[in-house]
Design a protein around this nucleic acid. Structure first.
Length: 862
RNA sequence: GCGGCGGUGGUGGAAUCGGUAUACACGACAGACUUAAAAUCUGUUGACCCUAGGUCGUGCGGGUUCAAGUCCCGCCCGCCGCACCA
């Protein structure tokens, strides 16, 4: 080795060392304090992308930092191996999902290892293996017996051409992505997990998560959506269905009850269906309603369409006859499938009333004039046009009306949640088989515990439509005490695997049960969880829910799984395209584009290098295969080494912000490491040096030595408390710049300080660029293990500060003063500044403000 | 549509508790070294002006304050999520 930085050699060396010494293998217990650091495990899609690298780099920095601080760190990795892409790939490549998955895992393992992450590979888990999903099936049967799992009919996206269920992402503009057929809603029997039993606890638990980002807690709170309201009964006149002589609608605004203009039913409501039997126009309308996707997004943006059912209900207070409508924006799955329409004071009802010319009645008044025909009034105020309730405040009227209805047994107070029970059935092959079976007499029963796991056959052929499980009659058929039984052919939602993997990492090879309580008790909760913000609601809520289930089964002790959460932003890159006459964009990789910039560096023109054709710049977009703007981490590592890639990803943006990829930025990170390498190499040439004698330093030496300790202080705080690795790195860069500009005289202390600075930088960088730090440290200290540097509190005390003087809010001067000078002294000094004198002129001073060690603000009388 | 987040030089970003706006890095320009290039090093770099100084400037429009990128009100734009992608 020489003063040239060769990352490939260095990284291979460091990785070999860690592997031989089993540096990152975690023992079951230790005298040290434990720290469990977890990055969300990856779906084995085949290639590691930069988003993954960012995720694992962030987690690795924290894990390595804590290890250097002396914690007993667990930092595991595994594979979220079930999922739809494997089925797609299997069809495309004429292989089985299992083969494709295992190949990807092998390839991605190699890539992960090249990045030098401090994973404990002995804890590696793969969720598609029976030893993992066995316990999921076991839990399913326990929860079924406890009544937390039930079966009901629920809607799915159905392609009538392919006769298959489609995921929301497989529906494009309401049509099947494969055959362009209009997608329908179809009701199927499906399994549900009663997450709503835990609504209140999931909401209350957010309070104790003080180390979670506020935004994520806000999103979860809104997702759970607790509201207080009442269920109101509307008596139906001459109902065609006996059980439906009453329709119940939930509302949070009983104060607007006098403004109801109609009830609106879902197309699948039994009353709508009953009436449609004798009404072909209605039947056709209901049929078209079914051509809406099962997603809230679609529901909220579709044009609201409805039809009068010709049915009437009685207003619960006045007895007035109100019409009943059916509409496409009300779904049977949510609530009771009945909505009480108050167009004057609800946006959706207002839009619906407008398109069908229904009466809009204002029953709440504001202090200002309102035109209820121009827009609904959504705030609170005083009641009007509400008979005896006129002039009452909304809040008072709310109580009064609710109490009256409850007393008359026409309503009941109710707490409602937006959160719905979790549908966990999937009509797909590549997932955990649901451990249920059906006897010939339709009795539903669990597969007995001793017969678990129900193994998913791995050698299968996929046709792109039907799940192989549904065609495999042999697999389906089982014998139950001499009776013929049929297995459930649906599989579990893959969110289930990711809802408890963090707990299994505590005891990945435990065979006596789902979890080893001793281990979960020691390791849980996860001290630091790192993952994408896109999981803010679903995955993180499901995992919190599972944790509470596991706690109630005495498998874990605490109530929340993740103590601290870091949500990283996406990785973006430049995207270019050529648009043809039909407006279809074809995306061009940046490597095939020649860019022309003006003298400021702004892009003015881009051309396709090969054809010379003009190319449009789409800006920075999320990296994706389809946009051709993905960056392959492997080629980056080959060129710059893992340390450079890690350093750049940490430096380019704070972790929770989106990160814009730039190749010149990577060059900059590389340059920095080259410079560090060279400087350390030259320092090593100086041989043995005395220690820094902090009492005997001259002014300049002391300033530089203080700088070192200020940087140690800042980097520690930036990594530990703030988690802003970008600012940590920039302050390290500043220190290296200062050291490179230092003139080293014959005085030993100059060289000693220089070395102290370089050694501090080597350690401070170790969590971020572990390979170069490891090798440089070995050069310096031979066998001694690297620990996190401590700052000297004495060295943080500065004796001079810079004051700023503002006159009428404008910065006019700055001056140096000794720390902790008195107010009077500082005012005198401020007023004696030449430029301050000029700004004041002959005006009189009205007020002077003093901010100690910082600023003086002079206000002149106008 | 609903919920959450963001917008600062040519670019990524910094400013941590309302107190020096633009740290650090990239790019650009100039110079040193070199036969030359690469690499490296040094310097300059928000805009404008009457240039020892001043005016303007953190998406837009208002407000609070001695003082606002930061707080409040109203907009515009972009991104993420919306329950079968993971």
């Amino acid at each position: 080795m020489n003063d040239q930085y060769h990352p490939q050699k260095i990284e291979e060396m460091a990785q070999k060392y860690w592997e031989q010494h089993q540096t990152f293998k975690t023992e079951a217990t230790s005298d040290k304090e434990k720290f469990y650091c977890l990055s969300m495990f990856p779906y084995p899609s085949g290639q590691l992308h930069v988003g993954h690298v960012r995720n694992y780099t962030l987690g690795d920095v924290i894990a390595r930092f804590k290890r250097m601080k002396g914690y007993h760190v667990m930092h595991p990795i595994g594979w979220d191996a079930f999922g739809m892409p494997a089925e797609g790939a299997a069809i495309k490549h004429q292989t089985a999902p299992a083969d494709w998955t295992y190949q990807n895992i092998a390839a991605m393992t190699v890539q992960l290892k090249k990045l030098g992450f401090s994973f404990d590979w002995t804890r590696e888990m793969t969720t598609c293996k029976p030893e993992y999903y066995k316990w999921e099936q076991w839990l399913f049967t326990i929860l079924y017996q406890k009544g937390l799992i039930y079966r009901k009919f629920s809607a799915v996206n159905w392609c009538p051409q392919d006769e298959t269920v489609l995921a929301n992402e497989q529906v494009e503009n309401g049509r099947c992505w494969r055959c362009d057929t209009l997608v329908e809603r179809k009701e199927l029997p499906q399994w549900f997990l009663k997450i709503t039993d835990y609504s209140d606890e999931l909401l209350a638990g957010l309070e104790e998560l003080s180390a979670w980002p506020e935004q994520v807690k806000a999103m979860q709170k809104n997702w759970i959506g607790r509201s207080e309201g009442i269920d109101i009964d509307f008596k139906v006149f001459d109902s065609p269905v006996d059980q439906y002589d009453i329709l119940t609608a939930y509302t949070t605004r009983p104060d607007t009850l006098m403004g109801v203009n109609c009830l609106v039913l879902a197309a699948e409501h039994p009353l709508s269906l009953a009436i449609s039997e004798k009404n072909t126009v209605l039947a056709t309308f209901i049929q078209t309603c079914k051509q809406t996707q099962v997603s809230e997004t679609t529901l909220s943006v579709i044009e609201k369409k409805g039809m009068n059912l010709g049915l009437e209900v009685a207003h619960p207070l006045t007895g007035e006859r109100l019409p009943v409508w059916v509409a496409n924006y009300v779904l049977m799955d949510y609530g009771s499938g009945v909505v009480m329409s108050v167009p004057g004071h609800d946006k959706r009802d207002w839009e619906f009333a407008k398109s069908y010319y229904l009466p809009i009645k204002q029953v709440i008044a504001s202090k200002t004039e309102i035109d209820i025909e121009a827009a609904p009034f959504l705030q609170t105020g005083c009641l009007i046009q509400s008979g005896e309730f006129d002039h009452l405040d909304c809040q008072v009227a709310w109580r009064l009306i609710a109490d009256r209805l409850v007393k008359e047994k026409k309503a009941a107070l109710k707490v409602n949640y937006r959160l719905r029970d979790w549908g966990i059935s999937r009509q797909r092959y590549w997932g955990t088989p649901i451990p249920m079976c059906y006897l010939e007499d339709d009795t539903v029963m669990c597969v007995p515990e001793e017969e678990l796991p129900v193994i998913l056959p791995e050698s299968v052929h996929l046709n792109g439509m039907q799940s192989p499980l549904k065609e495999d009659l042999k697999w389906q058929q089982i014998d139950h005490k001499g009776q013929l039984a049929k297995r459930e052919t649906d599989t579990l939602d893959t969110f289930i695997e990711s809802s408890w993997y963090y707990a299994r990492f505590c005891c990945p090879h435990f065979q006596e049960g789902m979890l080893d309580v001793k281990q979960t008790q020691y390791w849980l909760p996860v001290d630091q969880y790192v993952g994408g913000i896109e999981h803010a609601c679903m995955h993180l809520l499901y995992a919190r829910f599972f944790h509470k289930i596991l706690r109630d089964l005495d498998l874990v002790q605490c109530s929340e799984p993740f103590k601290r959460l870091l949500c990283q932003g996406m990785v973006l890159a430049d995207a270019f395209y050529i648009e043809n006459e039909a407006g279809v964009k074809s995306w061009i990789a940046a490597a095939d584009v020649t860019i022309e910039r003006n003298e400021k560096g702004r892009l003015i023109q881009a051309k396709h290098t090969e054809s010379g054709q003009l190319v449009s710049y789409a800006g920075m977009l999320k990296m994706s295969k389809s946009k051709q703007n993905g960056i392959d981490p492997q080629s980056l590592i080959l060129h710059y080494g893992a340390d450079t890639v890690r350093l750049y990803l940490l430096f380019a943006a704070p972790p929770e912000q989106q990160l814009e990829w730039s190749s010149s930025g990577t060059e900059g990170a590389y340059r920095f490491l080259k410079k560090l390498w060279k400087m350390v190499w030259h320092d090593l040439d100086r041989g043995a040096l005395p220690a820094v004698n902090k009492a005997g330093l001259n002014k300049l030496q002391k300033k530089l030595y203080q700088h070192i300790h200020q940087v140690i202080h800042k980097v520690t705080d930036d990594i530990d408390r703030r988690q802003t690795f970008n600012t940590a790195i920039s302050s390290i860069m500043e220190l290296l710049n200062a050291l490179s500009k230092q003139t080293i005289s014959k005085d030993d202390q100059d060289a000693a300080i220089h070395r102290a600075g370089l050694q501090a930088i080597t350690c401070l960088l170790a969590p971020m660029t572990p390979h170069i730090s490891h090798v440089l440290w070995q050069k310096y200290a031979l066998e001694k293990e690297m620990t996190w540097p401590l700052y000297d509190p004495d060295m943080l005390i500065v004796d001079q500060v810079t004051y700023v003087v503002q006159v009428n809010g404008k910065m006019r001067a700055r001056f140096e003063a000794e720390t902790n000078c008195s107010e009077d002294t500082i005012f005198q000094m401020a007023l004696s500044q030449k430029n301050v004198k000029n700004s004041i002129g002959n005006q009189s001073i009205k007020k002077m403000i003093w901010v100690p060690n910082k600023l003086v603000s002079i206000v002149l009388s106008s």
